[in-house]
């Protein structure tokens, strides 16, 4: 249950009424965070929090060795502080990438918290976001801790993971709303569960399992992958300050993976 002033970050369609996720073109969050309109500014802040809360939480756990409870408080505190202080508004794309800027801000925030014992008491931080820390903790448990010198790359990878998760959630929501939940299950069976287990089912097996023809499996998976691609790029574009950053980030996300 959400409390007053708390924003639910658990689904893409829950941003605000009227802000239908896709396929409409989204504006850059930077247009929003710099807007004179407070409601728009808040929307921009929410979009950034949605993309970055998990990488932030995980970095706090890995780099700052914060225990789960403290990392939760700091994550909430960091985004609350950013909203109050207009941290995102001050970002200058000419100076650095957003990811780098955000990480530096986080370092500063943690240093301050430590210096001033900022966390008044456990559980005392303002909870401005509804975040699934349990899932983030589960991901941490399932992964190998990064080496100290790889923390920048680690932060980037976690951000990438977060972006894909959001794009997948967008895809799922769109399909469910269109009454095509089965199609998402087909995609998940082939490209999520199958990829993770290392044994992707054949199209023939999928056809049998879902009671459709082989041709339907092929065409549906093809269409779903294209949709995922579009959702991912839209999510990415939304969190980039300009076209140059968008292109650089897209290369970083998509480049260098052997098919």
């Amino acid at each position: 249950m959400l409390q007053d002033g708390e924003r639910d970050m658990s689904g893409p369609g829950r941003e605000t009424a009227g802000d239908h996720a896709f396929p409409q073109t989204r504006h850059s969050v930077f247009e929003r965070v710099r807007s004179a309109d407070e409601a728009l500014r808040r929307l921009g802040w929410e979009a950034l929090a949605q993309s970055y809360w998990k990488p932030v939480y995980k970095l706090l756990r890995m780099r700052w060795k914060a225990d789960p409870e403290l990392a939760e408080d700091w994550t909430q505190g960091f985004f609350a502080h950013a909203l109050e202080q207009g941290t995102f508004e001050r970002f200058d794309p000419a100076q650095a990438r957003l990811r780098t800027y955000l990480r530096l801000c986080l370092d500063g925030f943690v240093a301050n918290q430590r210096a001033f014992q900022g966390r008044a008491k456990r559980g005392g931080a303002a909870r401005v976001l509804s975040l699934d820390f349990e899932a983030a903790e589960g991901e941490l448990a399932a992964s190998t801790p990064p080496a100290t010198e790889d923390l920048e790359a680690y932060f980037q990878r976690e951000w990438m993971r977060s972006l894909f998760e959001l794009a997948l959630a967008d895809l799922r929501q769109e399909l469910e709303q269109a009454g095509k939940g089965q199609e998402y299950l087909l995609f998940a069976r082939c490209d999520l569960e199958g990829a993770e287990s290392g044994r992707r089912p054949s199209y023939g097996e999928l056809a049998q399992e879902f009671g459709i023809t082989l041709g339907q499996v092929t065409s549906r998976l093809h269409a779903l992958r294209a949709k995922l691609r579009a959702r991912l790029l839209a999510r990415l574009r939304e969190t980039c300050a300009d076209e140059d950053e968008f292109r650089a980030e897209a290369r970083a996300i998509l480049g260098g993976v052997e098919p």
């Binding site: 970050m9 998990k54 899932a135 993971r161 894909f164 990829a195 993770e196 996300i253 098919p259």
Partner: peptide, 17 residues
């Protein structure tokens, strides 16, 4: 993000490709 939903490393790399 949807509760309980997360991407493993292998799935992430597969999706990137």
């Amino acid at each position: 993000m949807n509760r309980g939903f997360s991407l493993g490393d292998r799935t992430l790399d597969h999706l990137r490709a």
